[in-house]
Amino acid sequence: MADKHQMSVSVWRGAAAGSFQSFDVKMEENQTVLDVVAWIQQHADPTLSYRYACRVGMCGSCAMMVNGTPRWTCRTHVKKVLVDGHMEIAPLRNLPVIKDLATDMDPFFDKWVAAEGLHHPTQTRHDPIEAIDPASAGRVEVNAGIECINCSVCYAACDTVAGNPDYLGPAALQRAWSVYNDSKDAGKQAILDAVSGVGGCHNCHSQGSCAVHCPNELNPMNAIAGLKRETARNFFRRRAR
């Protein structure tokens, strides 16, 4: 489009079946993709559905496919993604679409639980608080994955998830790895069993799209590699017994 004060934005409308609808949106000096979606909903079509909360990259609820790439829209500047005055905004890939840009995140979060990405306590509230050395190997490993905001960008970027609906996915496995390395966690064996099943870490082909697209620059692929090593070690340990 020639007009540099306007951009044309194709937005997905409908659920699994649907189509793109085109909107003309005014360009601003400082504008995020989420601003554009909000503008459309406020000024062009109030029936547009989408999800956001914090607008500062903390809550992880605003992720969408922008020109075919999963992104956190509240922290993505329009200038970075606009191609010839045009962009395409679609709901996150690999998740059921509820309506327009809102996906059903249940499968994503159910898999965190299925991967045993939960705290398995070793103590009760009556015990004194355990001191953790920030430089200990386990804690350093946990640090690498702890900033996850559950935005599902990695899950949408992963071709293994696309090919195998049972695959637990990068985020859930990374959480399982963090919990596994937590010295205050009592469920190590439960985690290894959960992540070595049919949909477990061994499905990962190390394509690395999770690490490339993670908005917080985490590396779920490394975490999954860690789980692969530990589950293999565990396998031989059990056979040796």
């Binding site: 082909h205 394509q207 690395g208």
Partner: peptide
């Protein structure tokens, strides 16, 4: 080859 696949690791996989 969609946008999210244009990176070295994915090409190595391919």
């Amino acid at each position: 080859i969609r946008g999210y696949r244009t990176h070295t690791l994915w090409v190595a996989f391919l």
